[in-house]
Write a protein that binds this DNA or RNA. Sequence first.
DNA 1: CGACCTATTGAATACCATCAAACGCCGTGG
DNA 2: CCACGGCGTTTGATGGTATTCAATAGGTCG
Lengths: 244, 244
Amino acid sequence: MEASTVRNPLSMALERRDSLSERERELLDVIAGARRTIPARSDFVVEGDSPRVSTLMLSGLSARYNIVADGKRQISAVHVPGDFVDLHCFLLRPIDHSVVALTECEVSAVPHEFLRQITCAEPHLTRLLWLLIVIDAAIFRQRLVGASRLPAEAQIARFLCEIYVRLEVVGLAANHAFDLPITQGDLGDIVGLSLVHVNKVLQRMRGDGLLSWNGRELRIVDWDAMAAEAEFDATYLNLEMTPR
Amino acid sequence: MEASTVRNPLSMALERRDSLSERERELLDVIAGARRTIPARSDFVVEGDSPRVSTLMLSGLSARYNIVADGKRQISAVHVPGDFVDLHCFLLRPIDHSVVALTECEVSAVPHEFLRQITCAEPHLTRLLWLLIVIDAAIFRQRLVGASRLPAEAQIARFLCEIYVRLEVVGLAANHAFDLPITQGDLGDIVGLSLVHVNKVLQRMRGDGLLSWNGRELRIVDWDAMAAEAEFDATYLNLEMTPR
DNA sequence: CGACCTATTGAATACCATCAAACGCCGTGG
DNA sequence: CCACGGCGTTTGATGGTATTCAATAGGTCG
């Protein structure tokens, strides 16, 4: 996990979309400075809390989830390094979901008061943080469309394409391969399918030469076929470099 | 539709969540001032555009949607008066979905330059606009959970509970009743179900005394049963009055 | 009065969930 | 060194929910 901690992944994510001033870079380093380690499979935000800090991912994978009446878990978002897990909690209280570390995670806890000061003194940086929320919402929109209208294959393909691009942005993926140390059960909770069905679909996709996955490294063998199956178009991730 | 235009619905929505200064109220009236009417069933934002204005709903209902490969339409969000349809487009370009007027709508087009000035000069108002985005995202999250994990009855019940609360905030619903002049086909595209199945579920719900709907006025006859069926909890709509 | 849109109904089918059981891998402890 | 247990993966069988196809009925507007 060392590579992920060398450089501030939040700065990387933002500098992919707009240029930062020296002062902004310093502020982002302060934001990323309160480092803490979360053990795998533990919840670090619990539904109903009203935390006074927001959490920035520095390494590992985490997930926001809800539990519905019959006990099923639905993961609404998967977070990669550079993601602000709870930036919205700065304004939204109490929180309507829990967050679990899918793997061991390094995070930084940012006091809301600090964020508030940024909104008062740093309009450009404020817009960039706002942009992060907007991208987050765009991801939800796309997932909602997929969950409601696409078959299982396409949903899984979509998730894998998306997570690859997001990891690539922060330097954690290349050549259509990346670490994905989660279980098929987790993946089922992400895409809203049963574990059994996820397994069968994955085997079909492996058989068709679309991907390989040994439980750790996931490789998208045929990116074009995968993206076509997923109807994937990265526009919604807003990777354009442009003044905001 | 007159009642909806008497008072600025954006001010109403924000004042339900935090108090506004005189100056902020004036700015919001400027935002709501560029009034324009959109005919029913016409698209007023098209996927791929990079508009320089954002659109505020003043009356009527509109919807963001995507079309997937096999031609099915999925509505990702329904907008009521007071909603900023495209506030996120201020930062997010190009746009990854289209917006259609489900009914005739009055809207106001707000130049992005004006919004940008607000982020520079009005930190509190900036946070409130940010809050709108955050609530929008929370709605997506909840709908994603529902779409992935809940049966048809619950999904429809959820949507109706949610839209009732949101209309109530801007004074367009009371006593568990409100105007919903959309077709069952539209409703199917909202919840991600076929027209045929929507029809059958609605009849079951009518038969169980949960609701009545003549194509225009929708009445939630048994709110408690409906909310229970939907597993509905309005927390995510953030209706608390609190400094932001 | 006819055209068109929406709602309604029934039948056949597809997709995915659930249930149940076996298999493989790996770490632990006797 | 091997037996054991736990966890994750794999497989097959069965059933339910929702889709699709197809046809009818109702309502509204020119």
